[in-house]
Design a protein around this nucleic acid. Structure first.
Length: 637
RNA sequence: GCCGGCGUAGCUCAAUCUGGCAGAGCAGCGGAAUCGUAAUCCGCAGGUUAUCAGUUCGACUCUGAUCGCCGGCUCCA
């Protein structure tokens, strides 16, 4: 009797009769696994638990622990949601409903947008469908049949046409009870397997993300294998709200916007301006250490330069101003300014690489709907540098930038990041040779740094390949961080060259790179990462001195002055309030250290230290505290 | 820019649905109290209800436009 041999993830293998289903194999491995099983991965293909296995190969049972398992679980929930929506809104046309990070959505074409109230009704209907526990059934039909089945849904017809064009002969359907959807699958065995779900929000979304297409109504939701995990997820969302940099920014007086002064334009009151300055000073010093040279370029540049750079023709969202018949563009990027400085002299190969650094403030007219606190603004400052080098120097330069970025991220407490390499897009400038060379430089630099990276083929800019690093914050969310872009375009447009050993002019290679990237966005991420509780080296106010009574004011002022003279950021709370009230105020402002000074401290020349993290840690001589504080600040922890 | 939801004191919110004198807590200011590790007490002040226009005897409330914010789409550092 023939046997099918399956190799399990632990490299052991099992032999089963051909036609055994994935679920049966899972049962053989263990009843618990069978219970948790969502689908099966067979030779890297995802299949239903009910699929009969006819081939040898690698076999894995997917549970919710696997990313694919989560996606399948949630996508099945999306089907159930679509079913519920059609029950309640028979005129709705379902379109697509994929699983996404932490959940799923489904887009519908409906005459009237859904309301928040509709979500509760849809949830109730979904629960009924789940309680009915009907199986998800896979079915394959011909394209012809699919056209008939989905004839009244132009979105599904569009997808069917595309499937046909890509050579699919059979169209796969999944159905449960009377709901049928075009779907590759796989799915859960039955609706009853969905244990905990919640619909979260409604929003408009364009069909296929293209704004020339009709706008659909999207419902976001999430699903987990048990109520506890769902509640945990919802708590994380609540926690994220508490750490929202917009809320903390107001409470800690870090930044603000003025409705009357313009959207997306940031104002920094003293605390925020101090934090920003600390970050800017730090990145400037770190650049200087690494052989970058400081340059400075104006905010206004004649529009002709923006024509040379190509921004004007691209309709880049720039601000322009016209004075006495001369048009100026407010810079949306720092590169042209740096290029002008480079071009102001003839450069020899001996001069290269040249690394120009500027905390460059740029303005971009971002569309109204995309502005978001500090994360997306219209005026922002980049820790921007441009490296002008020879093709041979590219690998070393990029390696240096990656190391730099790693150091900086570590200092700010970001331990994890994702790295993406975007390569040559279909429409690109520059020779194949230079693209290969630059792409190799980027990959070998990534390998030299020992970084895992995801390759995004064809996603580079038209002018060159790039590396994007996104950083993971304390809540596990990823944010766009450092980027490194090779540029073959501007060196051509501005005709920038160097004289090589052969005495001839050669085209320079240009690298654009930011480390913290937009300082505003970086501060936003930093605020959320630390939840506003900044380490001593970053805290706008490091120490608050709290005199207990008016008798202690004079001593408290001495303590304050001594710390201030020592270079620390210190404030005194002279308000006629109780100690408890002063402590509360300082705690709410998340100040790292409070120094309580009363009669006892005054007599002994000490300070009673209260730390944000550890609470009351008792009296000590001021010198001892200063020593400790200086060490903590210097360690940047 | 698009879809939807919003905009009341510095902040958090009431009154808006059903048009009829805009109200509270915190913060602020004044005073009393001088207190030992997360809110002392009393008092005062604070508003062209985002802006502009319309409907109405009368608009925070209804309508429209503009500005701004929020959740998304798209874009992006």
């Amino acid at each position: 009797m023939p046997k099918t041999i399956l190799t399990l993830p632990d490299n052991s293998s099992v032999e089963v009769a051909p036609g055994t289903t994935g679920l049966q194999v899972a049962e053989m491995i263990g009843p618990r696994l069978a219970q948790d099983a969502i689908a099966v991965k067979l030779n890297n293909r995802l299949v239903d638990l009910s699929t009969a296995i006819q081939e040898d190969g690698d076999f894995a049972v997917l549970t919710f622990d696997a990313p694919e398992g989560q996606q399948i679980y949630r996508h099945s929930t999306a089907h159930v949601m679509a079913d519920a929506v059609l029950h309640l809104f028979p005129e709705a046309k379902p379109t697509i409903g994929p699983a996404i990070q932490d959940g799923f959505y489904y887009d519908f074409d409906v005459p009237e947008p859904f309301t928040e109230e509709d979500l509760a009704r849809i949830e109730a209907q979904m629960q009924q469908i789940i309680d009915a526990d009907t199986p998800f059934v896979r079915r394959e039909i011909s394209a012809q049949e699919a056209h008939e089945l989905f004839g009244d849904n132009p979105f599904k017809i569009e997808m069917i046409n595309e499937l046909e064009q890509s050579g699919e002969e059979q169209i796969t359907l999944y159905e449960h009870s009377d709901f049928v959807d075009l779907c590759r699958g796989p799915h859960l065995p039955s609706t009853g397997r969905i244990k905990a779900f919640k619909l979260l929000s409604v929003a408009g979304a364009y069909w296929r993300g293209d704004e020339s297409n009709p706008m659909l109504q999207r419902i976001y939701g999430t699903a987990y294998p048990d109520e506890k995990m769902l509640q945990q997820h919802l708590r994380r969302l609540e926690e994220a709200k508490e750490r929202d940099h917009r809320k903390l920014g107001r409470e800690l007086e870090l930044f603000t916007f003025f409705d009357e002064a313009g959207a997306g334009l940031v104002y920094y009151p003293p605390n925020g301006a101090m934090l920003r300055q600390i970050v800017c000073d730090f990145t400037t010093q770190e650049h200087l250490k690494r052989g970058y040279q400081l340059v400075r370029t104006p905010h206004l540049i004649k529009s002709e330069i923006w024509e040379t750079s190509g921004h004007a023709q691209q309709n880049y969202p720039m601000y322009y101003t016209d004075v006495s018949g001369q048009s100026y563009g407010i810079k949306p990027m720092n590169c042209p300014g740096h290029i002008l400085i480079y071009k102001s002299k003839t450069r020899s190969y001996r001069d290269l690489p040249i690394r120009y650094f500027e905390l460059g403030t740029v303005y971009r007219h971002e569309r109204g709907g995309v502005l978001h606190g500090l994360m997306r603004v219209r005026g922002f400052t980049q820790d921007d540098a441009h490296i002008f080098c020879t093709p041979e120097q590219l690998t070393d330069e990029i390696t240096g930038v990656i190391r730099f970025a790693q150091d900086m991220l570590q200092t700010f407490g970001f331990a994890e990041y994702n790295v993406a390499l975007s390569t040559k897009p279909p429409k690109a400038l520059g020779s194949d040779e230079i693209w290969v060379r630059a792409t190799n430089a980027l990959t070998s630099a990534l390998e030299a740094a020992g970084l895992d990276y995801e390759e995004k083929p064809g996603e580079g800019a038209f002018y060159g390949p790039k590396i994007d690093i996104s950083i993971k914050d304390a809540l596990g969310r990823f944010w766009q961080g450092p980027t490194i872009q090779c540029d073959f375009n501007l060196p051509e447009r501005f005709d920038i060259t160097y004289i090589a050993e052969d005495g001839q002019r050669h085209r320079v290679v240009m690298v654009h790179r930011v480390v913290l990237a937009g300082i505003e966005r970086f501060l936003g991420v930093l605020i959320e990462h630390y939840g506003g509780s900044f380490p001593v080296w970053l805290a706008p106010v490091q120490v608050k001195v709290l005199p207990i009574t008016d008798r202690n004011l004079e001593y408290a002022r001495q303590v304050t002055a001594q710390l201030h003279d020592g270079g620390f950021r210190v404030e005194i709370d002279e308000a006629p309030a109780t100690l408890q009230a002063k402590i509360r105020d300082a705690e709410l402002m998340k100040i790292p250290y409070m120094l309580v000074v009363g009669d006892r401290e005054q007599e002994s020349g000490q300070v009673a230290v209260r730390s944000r993290e550890a609470g009351d840690i008792g009296p000590q001589p001021l010198d001892e505290f200063v020593h400790h504080l200086a060490a903590e600040a210097a360690a940047r922890t």
